[in-house]
């Protein structure tokens, strides 16, 4: 490579930057950005969008200057290679890497993750009812209101065993208060869900929406007994575990913190005669009665005798933990 045409490279780089900006702009305008980034991260996306437009424009202007080399020629000491290295083919490959996400972003359909991803990630039933670290650590807490230290002092070995094995709590202890939207300290937190449970108890039908999804998942775990026999309606995509019977189904939702890469899956068990007609990944509206049931040894709410209707994908297919 005898001569490095920096003005040409500045030009191409500028256009690639504009390409990124256009992709982000299009995703923002079309609203499809919700498939990739959580709403609370949007300010960063706007920042990236504007910065890319500015950088791209600057870079294209830089390319028009004949003496673009002047400031950043080989004599510059800024300590990194300003030049895209290698023979032409390598340069082409490097630029292709940058163009790839732009092309994929425009051409491939914007969709939310589906049940194959859900299966891979492993579904969390209820609010994460199973005894996770936090949960078993605080397992004895709910009913007795004793704190963790007391729980430990009562039975140090057993307590630590639970903590380490992440298991061993019997189902009574599983009533539980871990959730990702847990903002308050333990008491305020319990209080919040107690109030929510009492409020919901007076409603004829519990309607689960995007906004209260994770709250209701949690409250149904913590105070399941209060909800048995109540009617509930919920929307989610249909999902089946391999060991499910014909009348069993899950209405599942992905929950996203920052971006799709960190999405987790939450689901509610449904028992219905109509379940066998539902294909996986179709969005369903379920209306039924809450009962307590068991799956994999955990006590869970299950929606029985559910009436299932296929519905369109909700505007926001993901649910988000709310840091109240």
């Amino acid at each position: 490579m005898k001569h490095y045409d920096s003005s040409f490279h500045a030009f191409i780089q500028g256009i690639i930057l504009i390409g990124f900006a256009l992709l982000m702009l299009w995703l923002t305008i079309s609203g499809n950005i919700i498939y990739y980034i959580a709403p609370k991260m949007m300010p960063f996306v706007y920042f990236g969008l504007v910065t890319f437009f500015i950088l791209g424009t600057v870079q294209i202007f830089r390319s028009t200057k004949k003496e673009a080399n002047h400031e950043h020629g080989p004599s510059c000491s800024c300590g990194h290679d300003h030049q895209i290295p290698g023979p032409p083919l390598v340069k082409l490959a490097i630029y292709s890497v940058f163009i790839l996400p732009v092309l994929l972003g425009f051409v491939l359909p914007d969709r939310s993750l589906d049940s194959s991803a859900a299966q891979n990630r492993g579904i969390t039933y209820g609010s994460g009812n199973a005894p996770s670290v936090t949960q078993s650590a605080s397992a004895a807490e709910t009913e007795t209101k004793s704190n963790r230290a007391e729980a430990y002092l009562d039975d140090p070995e057993g307590y630590m065993e639970q903590l380490e094995n992440g298991e061993g709590a019997d189902t009574e202890d599983l009533e539980e208060h871990y959730t990702i939207e847990d903002f308050y300290d333990q008491e305020g937190f319990d209080q919040y869900y107690k109030e929510l449970a009492n409020k919901l108890e007076h409603q004829d039908v519990i309607t689960v929406t995007e906004d209260n999804y994770l709250d209701i998942m949690t409250v149904m775990d913590v105070h399941l007994d209060q909800f048995i026999g109540k009617d509930i309606e919920i929307v989610g995509f249909a999902y089946r575990e391999p060991d499910f019977e014909d009348h069993e189904l899950v209405a599942a939702r992905f929950s996203m913190t920052c971006c799709t890469a960190d999405a987790g899956v939450y689901g509610t068990l449904i028992q219905s005669d109509e379940a066998k007609d539902i294909e996986e990944d179709t969005w369903i509206h379920a209306y039924g009665t809450i009962e307590a049931s068991e799956y994999n040894g955990y006590r869970l709410p299950v929606i029985t005798d559910a009436i299932l209707n296929e519905v369109d994908e909700p505007e926001s297919p993901y649910v988000y933990p709310s840091f109240r």
Binding site: M41, L108, P109
Partner: peptide, 30 residues
């Protein structure tokens, strides 16, 4: 483009790869 039959018929696993790939790129870029 995204609605053309050819692209709609892509295996969903690959669409998932694309979704996660773009989400990491879009989130990391800022």
């Amino acid at each position: 483009l995204s609605n053309t039959q050819y692209i709609q018929d892509l295996p969903s696993a690959w669409v998932n790869v694309n979704t996660i790939f773009l989400s990491i790129v879009l989130e990391a870029i800022p």
